[in-house]
Simulated assay, not measured.
Amino acid sequence: MRILVLEDDPFIASDLQAILEDDGHEVVGVFTSLAETYEHLDDGFDYALLDIDVVGGKSFGVASALAERDIPFAFVSASQPGDLPSSLCRVAFIPKPFEERTILQSISDTYSC
């Protein structure tokens, strides 16, 4: 699968990229800011992992844009699930610190029959 990552901590971004690539996924981009991510929303990817608090603010606008495009995604964040706006409260939420299997499970849950 082709996956976009929005994460402004370089160590976490590197971990996510390694987890995804080790599992055979292609990371189409690891972005650190909202502006950068908005520029790549039409790059043809299948899934996204979004930190909530990134350079430029919160990623809720990116999440809404993905939902409008029917691109599945999960939040990977140290924020609390209760911090999500009601329109996004049903989105997968992976708390930091995360486990590798939780990241991969979020992807397989989205694409399983």
Results as ranks from 00 to 15, higher is better:
Gly24Gln: 10
Tyr47Ser: 13
Ser112Gly: 14
Arg69Tyr: 06
Leu66Gly: 08
Glu99Lys: 09
Gly61Gln: 08
Gln105Ala: 15
Leu16Arg: 13
Asp9Tyr: 02
Leu4Asp: 03
Phe31Trp: 11
Ile52Glu: 04
Ser112His: 13
Arg69Glu: 08
Asp9Leu: 06
Phe11Lys: 13
Val54Cys: 04
Ser14Ile: 15
Ala78Cys: 06
Lys58Phe: 05
Arg69Pro: 11
Leu20Trp: 13
Ser112Gln: 14
Glu7Val: 14
Ala13Met: 05
Val55Tyr: 02
Ala35Leu: 08
Leu16Ala: 04
Asp109Gly: 05
Gln80Arg: 05
Ile19Thr: 15
Asp8Pro: 11
Thr32Arg: 15
Ser112Pro: 07
Lys96Ala: 06
Ser106Lys: 05
Glu26Gln: 14
Glu21Ala: 12
Thr102Lys: 12
Leu104Thr: 02
Gly56Arg: 02
Val76Gly: 00
Gly24Ser: 09
Pro85Asp: 02
Ala92Gly: 14
Tyr111Gln: 08
Ser14Leu: 15
Glu21Thr: 11
Pro85Cys: 03
Glu7Arg: 14
Ser79Asp: 13
Phe98Ser: 04
Ala18Gly: 09
Pro85Met: 01
Pro85Gln: 02
Cys89Asp: 14
Gly24Tyr: 07
Gly57Tyr: 00
Glu100Gly: 00
Gly29Cys: 03
Asp43Thr: 13
Val76Lys: 02
Val55Phe: 01
Leu84Ala: 03
Asp83His: 08
Met1Gly: 15
Ile3Arg: 06
Glu7Leu: 12
Leu6Glu: 05
Thr32Asp: 07
Asp83Ala: 14
Leu50Ile: 11
Lys58Arg: 09
Ala65Asp: 03
Arg2Asp: 12
Gln17Tyr: 08
Thr37Met: 00
Ser33Cys: 05
Ser108Arg: 09
Val91Cys: 02
Thr110Gln: 15
Pro10Ile: 02
Leu50Lys: 08
Ile12Arg: 02
Asp51Arg: 09
Thr37Phe: 04
His25Tyr: 06
Ala67His: 07
Gln17Ser: 08
Asp70Pro: 01
Ser77Leu: 13
Leu104Ser: 01
Val55Ser: 05
Ala18His: 13
Phe73Ser: 00
Ser33Thr: 11
Asp42Trp: 12
Ser108Glu: 10
Gly29Val: 06
Asp43Tyr: 10
Gly57Lys: 00
